[in-house]
């Protein structure tokens, strides 16, 4: 938690660009990759109402990602567009945490991934909303309302699956065992994040932790699920060291832009 992730100097830490650029890009990548994963459910949800809910959350995150990409492009000031940033960067240049690129799995896996993300995302946005960067604050303020709904939705599903049937409990336990190890990366700052935290531009994750922890404890108790022991956190996505899943995701996402470079769609 308190340890800082090592980070090699990368192309994204562009000289002359605003120090916020890599962080805003990281936020954009994170929301886009999770939105993409959720959009894979479209037409295949367990019941029509939840198909709609999954698409809704995906659309919210996609909208949020676009706001961040547009801002990142301005901060960078090299004339790149939101689509250049999303479609023309390779996996090692992507800065999303490992959690959001993990495959959908069954509905329990999707819910656990969503819950871990939402719980952090909601607190992060609350912090950013009151931060000194006006543009980031305004994106955060808009997204916070959506994130509150996402967190409510995923929390309710954790409770339903945990305190539902034997089958749903078994599947939830399995998803927790698979995904809990990716939660730590969200609140472990990279060197870039630490720097921005020192400058007061990004909320201190240590300060966010009690609220995240309290909500997790509350939801798991309601779900009658014992709190899992803290696993060794898997780190790397935020510094470009991804799992194998991201490459395939990007191959699909970027297919047309890569096949027909430079065209307008």
């Amino acid at each position: 938690m308190s340890a800082t992730q090592p980070e090699q100097s990368t192309a994204t830490a562009a000289q002359g660009a605003s120090p916020l650029f890599p962080f805003v890009l990281q936020l954009a990548d994170t929301s886009l990759i999770l939105a993409h994963r959720l959009s894979e459910w479209c037409g295949h949800g367990p019941v029509l109402e939840q198909d709609l809910a999954l698409a809704n959350i995906s659309l919210d995150l996609l909208g949020e990602a676009r706001s961040y990409y547009q801002y990142a492009a301005e901060l960078e000031g090299k004339g790149r567009t939101e689509d250049d940033l999303a479609y023309l960067r390779s996996a090692v240049e992507y800065r999303n945490p490992l959690l959001v690129e993990q495959p959908n799995g069954d509905f329990a896996h999707t819910i656990v991934r969503q819950f871990l993300f939402d719980n952090f995302h909601y607190q992060l946005l609350k912090g950013l909303k009151d931060g000194p960067d006006a543009r980031l604050a305004s994106i955060a303020e808009k997204s916070l309302k959506e994130a509150a709904y996402h967190l409510k939705w995923s929390s309710e599903w954790i409770i339903r699956l945990g305190d539902g049937t034997d089958e749903s409990r078994k599947r939830l336990d399995k998803a927790i065992a698979t995904l809990w190890r990716f939660a730590g990366e969200l609140t472990t700052p990279t060197a870039t994040e630490s720097q921005l935290q020192e400058l007061g531009l990004v909320p201190d994750y240590v300060a966010l932790w009690p609220a995240i922890q309290a909500h997790t404890a509350h939801v798991l108790a309601e779900a009658t699920v014992p709190e899992p022991p803290a696993p060794v956190a898997q780190l790397g996505g935020k510094t470009g060291r991804h799992s194998e899943h991201l490459g395939y995701l990007l191959a699909e996402l970027q297919y047309l832009q890569r096949t027909y470079p430079g065209l307008t769609w």
Partner: peptide
């Protein structure tokens, strides 16, 4: 999706 619907009902 059957197990999900059953869990919600249960």
């Amino acid at each position: 999706g059957a197990w999900v619907r059953e869990a919600a009902l249960a």
